[in-house]
Write a protein that binds this DNA or RNA. Structure first.
Ligand SMILES: [Zn+2]
Length: 276
DNA sequence: AATACGACCTGCTGGC
DNA sequence: TGCCAGCAGGTCGTAT
């Protein structure tokens, strides 16, 4: 569920709450939460206790908290993950997977219905954690090079929709914003990368940046309680969506009913008239 | 190298 | 009421 705007919204909330904070104890309630940590749950919990959160970072949908031992706590939200700043004594959530207590007794809760999200403690590899090094820069990073990215897309034989979901090409785009960027570009997701002009590829990348920026400005997209920010607040971009989840409803440009199809085992939504 | 596909989960909805 | 298929904001490992 959470794509770049949602993850960035969460990161900002967590950073504001815990930058400079010291971790006193960590509890993991579902071992899957720490499945990527090779040395296991006990080592994970023990290693974090006593460390200070020095800051935070994000690349695409991967976010992390920087720690004063030089490592990072990588947090991926998967399809349904949330991080909540808890300052009261609220009752445990049904999908509470992990809990981190700070020295001032505030807590960071990881709630995740489907358990595709995870926590991991990893060494840094330059600017990003080692386990994030294979992910391409997102469109907001200074390392992002639109010309280079466009050129790479033009050499791809896969559908553009699939390329947009490939986090090793550009990161941060998921199923919602892929469909929205394609609609804004008047491109069908079925088109292959090598069928685009360079100009069109650059236009697509521009729309990716625009839609992510606009969504972030209103806290991201929330359809239900599965996505809320670190304070439990919903985002408001759902009302701005042109195609995602709008099958059968009129295109906002030409009133033709939006069509749902399947590309690469994911739903895809488009206007059959004004997307080619 | 690039591409394709199943696996990993829980829960909700709609049809019979 | 029960049961089952289908669907959901993602990524990774393995096989071609
Ligand atoms: Zn249209």
């Amino acid at each position: 569920m959470p794509e770049l705007p949602e993850v960035e919204t969460v990161r900002r909330g967590v950073d504001a709450a815990f930058r400079g904070g010291r971790i006193s104890a960590v509890e993991v309630y579902n071992p899957r939460t720490v499945r990527r940590h090779a040395t296991g749950v006990a080592d994970f919990q023990r290693s974090l206790a006593g460390l200070e959160v020095t800051g935070s970072g994000r690349r695409g949908k991967f976010m992390w908290l920087g720690l004063d031992d030089g490592r990072a706590l990588v947090c991926h939200l998967g399809m349904s993950g949330q991080l909540h700043v808890v300052t009261d004594g609220r009752e445990a959530h049904k999908h509470l997977r992990g809990r981190m207590r700070f020295s001032d007794d505030r807590e960071l809760w990881f709630i995740d219905q489907r358990t595709f999200g995870y926590w991991d403690l990893v060494d840094m590899d330059g600017a990003v954690p080692a386990t994030v090094a294979h992910i391409a820069p997102d469109v907001f990073e200074t390392a992002f090079d639109p010309g280079l990215s466009a050129d790479r897309l033009l050499r791809r034989r896969i559908e553009v929709k699939k390329a947009l979901l490939d986090q090793t090409w550009i990161s941060g785009v998921g199923n919602i914003y892929a469909d929205e960027a394609l609609w804004r570009s008047r491109l069908r997701g079925r088109r292959t990368g090598d069928s685009l002009t360079r100009r069109k590829a650059l236009e697509l990348l521009g729309h990716v940046g625009d839609v992510l920026t606009e969504s972030l400005a209103v806290g991201g997209t929330s359809f239900d309680e599965l996505y809320v920010d670190a304070r439990g607040e919903a985002g408001y971009f759902a009302r701005e969506l042109a195609v995602y989840g709008r099958a059968g409803q009129p295109c906002k440009r030409c009133a033709t009913p939006i069509v749902r199809e399947v590309i690469g085992d994911r739903s895809a939504h488009y206007c059959p008239k004004c997307q080619r």
